[in-house]
Design a protein around this nucleic acid. Structure first.
Lengths: 194, 194
DNA sequence: CAATTCTCTTGTCATCTGTCAAGTATTCTG
DNA sequence: CAGAATACTTGACAGATGACAAGAGAATTG
């Protein structure tokens, strides 16, 4: 499956669009390749672009007390956009942790599309709402779980991350140190094999 | 300040609306009073209404392992809406933990308003985006903090909650037991006074 | 392909949180 | 206003995580 086909498949999931509309978007979509290690956005920079992952994995993190704290991992079909509409400097970094194929979109490109397809407003709103709900569900899960439960939950919901992301980055995403993640994994595998 | 005036002040904050549009919304807004202890939504029920707090405090919580886990507290000017657009049963409860004055809105009311004021779509999208960003910022904060730091942060950002909400509910919101919250508070006040 | 860097694991010890339990203070209700 | 229910604090102990350190293993790079 080449990038265009992948994008078509992803855009088709956006609810109330018909095939012609999907095709229009696919044609106008800008796709770019990025190497592992490339930084799409740094702390303090003003973000202007929106991305969707066609292939690869992007990590979002911030630096606190001199340490990198991962706050999100974006993989195939996930979108990530500037935190604020008001051009505020970013608090976090976006880093490709694999070779990536991403769609890239700007504010003006977005407005251009909206002019042609006003119904996209609905789609964008739906994406926003879905993101809220996802964030909310994850938040509830996180708050009400112990570190070990959080590990088990992530392994259940996104098992592929453990093969693709260095464990110390996953550890900070789970709110713990790499050593703790290592011990939890050992504890669980010990329990299984006894 | 009576409820109508409060609503006018709150709606005026919605960016690209002019005074006439604000007035139209204020007039059409339905306001209701709720007693402390009233449950607006229970787990398993299908949520149909959106609310905005004019006065009072609403707690959102879910039950996990037989315990109530608070996931949000909504106070003056904050909105809360169904998790999903697809009429799924709710996973959480909404409970008035003070006597409340709330604006109540339904899907059909929302559509009616959108017919009259199509530009509201923009406002709704902006609210959704703001909510995402807020949730994201809180998430980053939560992930990268220890329980004690989370307590200090909440006291800095929403100090009023500690006077209005039972501490054991705040404790579960911070991902800890009431005893731990109590100890943290003692530890900090001991340090201050030494 | 060898050396360097990065990553993961393991050990020890101090500290913090969870659990169980009891006692005090506060609020609610008849 | 008195009794009951709820909320908060404190103590002791077990278990888990954080900090520090060292070593094994894997990946990267020149």
């Amino acid at each position: 499956m080449n990038p265009k086909e992948k994008i078509r498949a992803l855009v088709s999931n956006f609810r109330p669009l018909n095939p012609e509309e999907v095709e229009l978007i696919v044609e106008k979509t800008v796709v770019k390749n990025f190497k592992k290690g490339e930084i799409l956005l740094r702390e303090g920079q003003i973000p202007t672009k929106c991305y969707m992952v066609v292939e690869g994995c992007v990590r979002e993190y911030l630096i606190k007390d001199g340490e990198e704290k991962s706050t999100a991992f974006y993989t195939e079909s996930e979108t990530f956009t500037p935190q604020s509409q008001q051009s505020k400097p970013s608090k976090h970094y976006w880093e490709c942790i694999e070779d990536c194929v991403l769609t890239v979109s700007t504010k003006s490109y977005e407005e251009e599309l909206l002019d042609i397809l006003p119904r996209l407003e609905l789609v964008f709103r739906q994406i926003a709402i879905d993101k809220i709900n996802l964030a909310k569900a994850e938040w509830s899960e996180f708050i009400s779980s112990s570190p070990e439960e959080r590990y088990l939950n992530l392994q259940k919901t996104k098992p592929y991350l453990f093969d693709r992301v260095p464990h110390h980055q996953i550890a900070s995403y789970l709110g713990m140190k790499p050593q703790s993640l290592s011990r939890i994994r050992k504890r669980i595998s010990d329990t299984k094999n006894s």
